[in-house]
């Protein structure tokens, strides 16, 4: 049963003051979801850590800052302990938050941008254009993305810029497919025909008519891309293939592996940091999705 249409009764319109703006409605729905709020809080904490890294833990996070392998809560100078080279774990966590966020945001922007353009063109024009673009997409999807990522990093080097670009390049296929599917269903909707019937150009139809309607699910999906980007960077760093000049959570876990038996905290603390950061993106994405599609939930 659908929501009853009251078209018979009401030829009058509801009061405009009672109709809140779209974004406000979304925020209200989002706010009602406790898990999503938790995600938001976690996210804000990570952002604050990244922003305040130089204030709370000033100086190079990779320098020797205390006796090696100090356990957490022992020394006031190293509240989360130190690793085998005497590097402060708390400094690593705070500075690592920066790298994770930068990688997450920039790589996501790159992959979503590529995905939107390719998906939109393929989905709107269809036919041969679609066929050719989908072959390329399939090719990218067929190579295991982590193997491609390793190859790209091996070839172009593991500076942070290269890693960000490489992650963007290996993760655009899913957004592209998604945008394509949205475009294929939206281009059949009558409002697109209506715009064509008014003489609106193809470019304007793609970007001004269809794209705004196709974006909400893509924005939700961006949270997934963000999460996987962070996971990919940390996996690279874990394998020792990250940028050695920056503190990275993955790298900390990788280094902690050799002292796992004696000093578990060296890997567990950054591990929990990744876990919570990725969790915050998932929770927010989920909450956003529920807010955008209220019918799925009670």
């Amino acid at each position: 049963m659908t929501i009853p249409d009251t078209s018979v009764a009401s030829d009058s319109l509801p009061d405009i003051n009672l109709m809140p703006a779209r974004s406000l409605v979304l925020w209200r729905r989002f706010r009602r979801n406790r898990a999503a709020l938790l995600g938001l809080v976690l996210f804000v904490i990570v952002v604050l850590m990244a922003a305040l890294a130089d204030v709370v833990t000033p100086g190079d996070p990779l320098r020797n800052a205390g006796p090696p392998l100090t356990a957490p809560l022992v020394l006031a100078a190293n509240p989360l302990g130190t690793d085998q080279l005497g590097r402060d774990i708390m400094a690593g966590i705070f500075h690592g938050a920066r790298i994770s966020l930068i990688i997450g945001v920039v790589a996501t922007l790159i992959s979503i941008a590529i995905g939107v353009v390719i998906g939109a063109v393929a989905g709107y024009f269809g036919g041969k254009v679609d066929g050719a673009l989908m072959r390329v997409t399939e090719a990218f999807q067929t190579i295991p993305s982590f193997v491609l990522l390793l190859t790209l990093v091996a070839i172009f080097g593991s500076s942070i810029q290269n890693i960000v670009i490489a992650i963007g390049i290996v993760s655009w296929t899913a957004p592209a497919r998604m945008v394509r599917a949205e475009f294929m269903s939206l281009r059949k909707r009558e409002f697109v025909d209506a715009a064509r019937n008014l003489g609106v150009s193809d470019v304007a139809i793609i970007f001004r008519e269809i794209l705004p309607n196709a974006l909400p699910p893509v924005i939700v999906f961006a949270s997934v891309v963000m999460a996987t980007s962070i996971l990919m960077e940390s996996a690279l760093a874990f394998l020792g293939l990250g940028d050695p000049n920056y503190a990275s959570w993955g790298n900390m876990i990788g280094q902690g592996r050799s002292v796992l038996r004696t000093a578990w905290f060296c890997s567990v603390i950054p591990g929990v940091a990744i876990l919570l950061t990725v969790l915050s993106f998932s929770l927010m994405g989920e909450g956003l999705n529920d807010a955008l599609n209220p019918r799925q939930k009670k």
């Binding site: 009558e190 409002f191 025909d193 019937n197 003489g199 008519e209």
Partner: peptide, 17 residues
Amino acid sequence: RKDIQMVFQDPMASLNP
């Protein structure tokens, strides 16, 4: 196109939301 205009079937789908 100015001279020949169309009214569509589905009043929901034919207006960009």
